[in-house]
Computed example of a mutant assay.
Amino acid sequence: MEKGFYHPDIGYWQTVGGNPSLDDYPEGTIEVPFKPSENHIWQGNQWVYVEPHQPTAAELRAQMADKTPREFRDILTDMGIFPHMVAAKINEIPFDIERQKALNAWEVSTYISRIDPYVDMIGAMFDKSPAEIDTAWLA
């Protein structure tokens, strides 16, 4: 026999088979109707629907697959940004350490993460928004 149970410290669970009793579970456990969906929480004496979390743009970017340097250069090329143009823009950075770190990211990386700040920096050098880069990254 299937039954639903809820305990404030443990949460919700269902049993399958047997004839479970409240005596079988920790004090404070109550029998409840089956949970309608993952988006419901037990509140008081009923299931209440809670809107699922909508990931932010930053959270979505963090989930995007890394790219190889060639894939990243192909993305930029499809956006009309060619490798020699990127190198020239990086060489215009006035601060030695920042310029060298940008060159390292551009020339030496074995993979490129969408959340690497240099990705957005390169995009900004060519008036590309993070959203435009996201679209190209996923294409």
Rank of each mutant, 00 (worst) to 15 (best):
P26A: 05
I41R: 14
V119C: 00
N104D: 14
I115G: 03
T77I: 11
F82M: 14
I81P: 01
A57M: 10
P36G: 05
T77W: 14
G80C: 04
N104A: 09
I30T: 07
P26S: 08
E38I: 12
M125P: 01
G80M: 02
S113F: 04
A102G: 05
P36W: 06
I93H: 06
A87P: 00
I75L: 12
P83H: 00
A62L: 08
N45R: 13
T110I: 10
A105M: 07
P33T: 09
E59S: 04
R114A: 10
E27Q: 13
T68W: 02
F82V: 11
Q63I: 04
E71H: 00
D74N: 13
M125K: 03
I75N: 03
T110W: 08
E31F: 02
A65I: 07
E38F: 13
L76G: 04
V48R: 08
H53G: 02
L76E: 06
V50E: 12
R61K: 13
V32L: 02
A65G: 11
W42V: 02
D74L: 14
I30N: 03
Q63N: 15
I75W: 00
F82H: 15
A87M: 11
F72E: 00
K35I: 05
F126Q: 01
E38D: 15
S109Y: 08
D120A: 10
E31W: 04
H40I: 04
F72V: 00
P94N: 11
E92C: 09
A88H: 14
D120G: 10
F82C: 04
T29V: 03
V32F: 04
G44N: 09
